[in-house]
């Protein structure tokens, strides 16, 4: 039982940054905006959270600032892609490059510094029950991710706001004629999504591996993008997806200790190949339509008379 608990715990720990990022991307994509820059957002969140925590000694403040930085970047992204109708693929790539560069620049003096990491807190009763305790012996940011997941799930699935958000992503023209402000929804979704992605980065630098290293997200932003596709834009499935990928990376080293005789480099390809497999399996155009992918994803909305 011990090992199962430990593996599950590792799975959640490794899956949390992915969960944050995937939720952020999901919210953004729901509104019809494709944000490929997740990696850049995560890195900026990681570095700003770390710097502030290092200076002030308060991880809480680091988290707030990381979210704020993500929010700012999301706003900028929305401004460029929603207002100016910039190509979302290229803008996303530019945000990856810019985020990588700027985080490296800002974090230069903070490599090798230490912080007091976000503490692990065991929930009194739940933390004692076998299996379930894996979910409740985690750091504060993990608990916060549960909360945010619930919030996103509720808002997207159960409220009028969520419905309108989907409408904007589905068919902006009819949403617009129904009196829903397409621009405002997209603006807000991008900005909040950005904040979520940055929190994912902050989890890595403040709790998972409490230090700052250039490029420390190591491609997790791209995996988050895949998780959203894998989840068919559904928060609950995104949760599973994030933990599934977390589980794969946690399992990788546990399998290695068993000496199964496969080159670790080949094993290292696994997450990427699985990702491609998942994409083939799920994201055919038909499946997308069937399962409610935002139809206008990646297409800038221009009002009649403007185009």
């Amino acid at each position: 039982m011990e090992t199962v608990d430990a593996l599950l715990q590792a799975t959640i720990r490794a899956g949390t940054p992915l969960l944050y990022a995937a939720l952020g991307e999901l919210v953004t994509e729901k509104s019809g905006v494709l944000n490929l820059g997740v990696e850049g957002f995560m890195l900026m969140g990681a570095v700003s959270g770390f710097i502030v925590t290092n200076i002030t000694g308060s991880a809480f403040m680091g988290i707030c600032v990381a979210a704020f930085v993500g929010f700012t970047m999301g706003t900028l992204y929305a401004f460029l892609t929603v207002e100016f109708a910039l190509n979302q693929v290229v803008t996303g790539l530019a945000f990856v490059l810019g985020g990588t560069g700027l985080s490296g620049f800002l974090g230069k003096g903070y490599i090798g510094k230490t912080i007091s990491q976000v503490p692990v807190w065991t929930v009194p009763v739940l933390g004692k029950i076998p299996v379930i305790r894996a979910f409740f012996t985690q750091d504060w940011l993990v608990y916060f991710s549960y909360l945010l997941f619930l919030l996103v799930w509720l808002v997207v699935k159960k409220t009028r706001i969520g419905m309108e958000l989907s409408a904007v992503g589905e068919n902006p023209r009819s949403a617009d004629s129904a009196g829903i402000s397409v621009y405002r929804y997209r603006f807000l979704a991008s900005a909040l999504g950005g904040a979520l992605m940055a929190l994912g980065g902050a989890h890595i630098s403040l709790a998972y591996a409490p230090m700052w290293v250039e490029n420390m997200t190591a491609g997790r932003g791209w995996i988050a993008l895949v998780i959203v596709i894998f989840a068919f834009w559904d928060p609950l499935r995104a949760l599973f997806g994030a933990y599934l990928f977390g589980g794969v990376s946690a399992l990788q080293y546990r399998v290695q200790t068993l000496n199964i005789g496969v080159s670790p480099y080949i094993l290292g390809m696994l997450p990427y190949l699985v990702t491609i497999g998942v994409m083939i399996f799920f994201s055919s155009e038909r499946a997308r339509r069937l399962l409610g992918a935002p139809s206008s994803l990646g297409k800038p909305y221009l009002r009649e008379g403007e185009k």
């Binding site: 090992t3 430990a6 593996l7 590792a10 490794a14 890595i204 998972y208 591996a209 230090m211 290293v213 420390m216 190591a218 990376s249 946690a250 990788q252 080293y253 546990r254 290695q256 200790t257 670790p264 480099y265 290292g268």
Partner: peptide
Amino acid sequence: VVWVNAWFDPATEKEAALSLIEA
């Protein structure tokens, strides 16, 4: 011995170390 196949990848290294501790 567990190979992480990187000189420098903190999150991965930590995960590898944790798997060894569990073992």
